[in-house]
Nucleic acid binder design. Structure first.
Lengths: 198, 198
DNA sequence: CCTGGATGTTAGTCATCATTAACTGATTCG
DNA sequence: CGAATCAGTTAATGATGACTAACATCCAGG
């Protein structure tokens, strides 16, 4: 009945504001732990006014995850194709993920926590984008390490995501640049090590 | 008024059963996304019967996280002290974390998702155990790489936890043993790389 | 001017849910 | 035997929360 439409391509500033506030709240207490009233309150309007911008709480979450997945993937494609060689492409992917994780910790947190709460039509689409993002990494890695088998590279990629996305857990241990460098080095050698795996 | 008591040292099989079922549910939809009724249903009893075993939903969660944190930490201490040298100690810590993550994906998921929903008296205690667990790693790493500064080692440890705990996200990509080996290798070289960090 | 859309507001409504109450059947053990 | 404790049950209760309705304001453009 309800036609599945790709999210409005005119992201009004209000929508963004709401999505940002909701992300912070969801990251702290989870989707079901946050009320519509609270989300509204976080942007100065109250409760049901949100329904002027989103058709419901779930669709708000869906749009949030969809947006994150799209940003990650398109940024990855751009960076990878711009790079002059495989090694540089990998570095660009790593740097992109690190920047995103450090700049938007709440989005990263929600992104890998709340997929289970997205209703079905949108969930499939988000998964598709996530898969494409992983495959972007696998493609670059395959060029760089032709010996490694794709399932191994996929598993290693997921592991590196876990490593890079860990920053919300170790907030403030190190200044941002030092943290970025540290993570970049760890990710690079961790990926290089899979070459030696059978 | 309610005296904070360390969790009953006689873990009745019923309690464990309930905690296990609840962990699976919490991992899938989050603490607030699961009802008492559902948790009861998952173990064949219905709803309010849970109050014969736990004083409330939150205390159930608290006990769950407390138990996980304790198991991780005591296992780490045991393994580290048993090891003949620093390198072996680190390998033992890595292997322990991998085994736990692969054997209990739901517990791992809940452990780093739901701390924000634990009420205050217990939350502090859980954090304390988590801190001790991290410090166990930092101690071993310091012995192994005397040059590195503790904040860097702490950040690197958190990153490696993210790497090792990523398995719930990449379920079934690889057979268990291959996955364990892959993660172990990645973690080892990632940690070794911090030596070169300023 | 005045009409209509965009954006809010407050006051319901209806479900769901955590928790409590009151009651029942076993099993233990004195 | 009998009393108590254990582990359940079903039926309230009281909050909370998502969503809807009805109503207000503020422009923009004809």
């Amino acid at each position: 009945m309800t036609v599945v439409r790709t999210p409005t391509r005119v992201p009004s500033p209000r929508r963004r504001e709401i999505l940002d506030a909701a992300a912070t709240l969801f990251a702290a207490r989870g989707f079901h732990g946050v009320s519509i009233e609270e989300i509204g309150g976080a942007v100065g309007i109250s409760g049901p006014a949100l329904y002027r911008h989103f058709t419901g709480k779930e669709s708000l979450l869906a749009e949030m995850l969809l947006d994150i997945s799209e940003r990650l993937r398109t940024s990855a494609v751009e960076r990878a194709t711009r790079a002059p060689d495989g090694a540089r492409a990998l570095d660009a992917l790593i740097a992109g993920q690190i920047d995103f994780a450090l700049d938007h910790p709440a989005l990263i947190t929600v992104h890998d926590r709340e997929l289970g709460n997205v209703p079905e039509p949108a969930r499939r689409q988000i998964r598709r984008l996530q898969r494409l993002y992983v495959e972007e990494w696998v493609t670059v890695l395959t060029e760089l390490y032709p010996g490694a088998r794709p399932p191994v590279l996929r598993a290693a990629t997921h592991a590196v995501f876990g490593l890079l996305n860990s920053t919300p857990h170790s907030a403030g241990e190190l200044p941002r640049d030092a943290m970025a460098e540290l993570l970049h080095g760890m990710a690079r050698v961790a990926l290089a090590s899979v070459v030696n795996e059978r």
